[in-house]
């Protein structure tokens, strides 16, 4: 695959995956902060803590983690130790690690889809607001699938990162 096509691919991935995820993650992060503030202020000043603040915070934490997962994966941002790089031919190592990553994330995505359908069948909800957990599980499965896709593309375009130059 030539460079022009790789560039296009990266641009599309950024537009369709990274950018929307970034915006949503940002909003959820902000709401998480605001939830605690409203809960504590409500409790002290008005004797009225925010109903279900506890479970909303939990839901938003999981959402932030899994919305961020494709972003950090596409940036090759997972912590790794580069100590003994010279022991193996660079290309072989790149392929081995790349395949290991794709396999691991693929399995991760698959078990999350499985989990999501089980949770849907059981009808699990939060305790107070009775928000179904299945929504969150499907989000987790979907973004993990996107992370797997990012890893596959990175292997395919022979690049380390799947981000537009100059972006953050």
């Amino acid at each position: 695959m030539d460079t022009v096509n790789s560039e296009t691919l990266i641009r599309w991935f950024d537009r369709l995956v990274n950018r929307p995820l970034r915006v949503v993650a940002m909003v959820v992060m902000f709401l998480m902060m605001a939830t605690t503030l409203v809960d504590v202020v409500g409790r002290y000043l008005f004797d009225a803590p925010l109903k279900g603040a506890f479970e909303l915070t939990e839901l938003m934490l999981a959402a932030v983690i899994f919305l961020g997962l494709p972003l950090i994966t596409a940036e090759n941002g997972h912590i790794a130790v580069d100590l003994l790089d010279s022991l193996m031919p660079a290309r072989l190592q790149r392929w081995l690690i790349g395949l290991a990553n794709v396999l691991a994330f693929g399995v991760f995505a698959w078990v999350l889809w499985d989990k999501a359908f089980k949770v849907l069948r059981y009808g699990d909800t939060t305790a107070v607001l009775q928000i179904p957990y299945a929504w969150l599980c499907f989000l987790m499965a979907a973004t993990t699938t996107l992370s797997t896709l990012a890893l596959l593309l990175m292997l395919f375009i022979k690049g380390d990162r799947l981000v537009v130059r100059g972006g953050h």
Binding site: M26, I65, L67, G68, L71, I72, H168
Partner: peptide, 16 residues
């Protein structure tokens, strides 16, 4: 930047 970077670092840490 502050909001998105918090989300990204959170994802990285929790994956770990």
């Amino acid at each position: 930047r502050a909001l998105t970077n918090a989300a990204r670092t959170t994802a990285m840490l929790f994956f770990l």
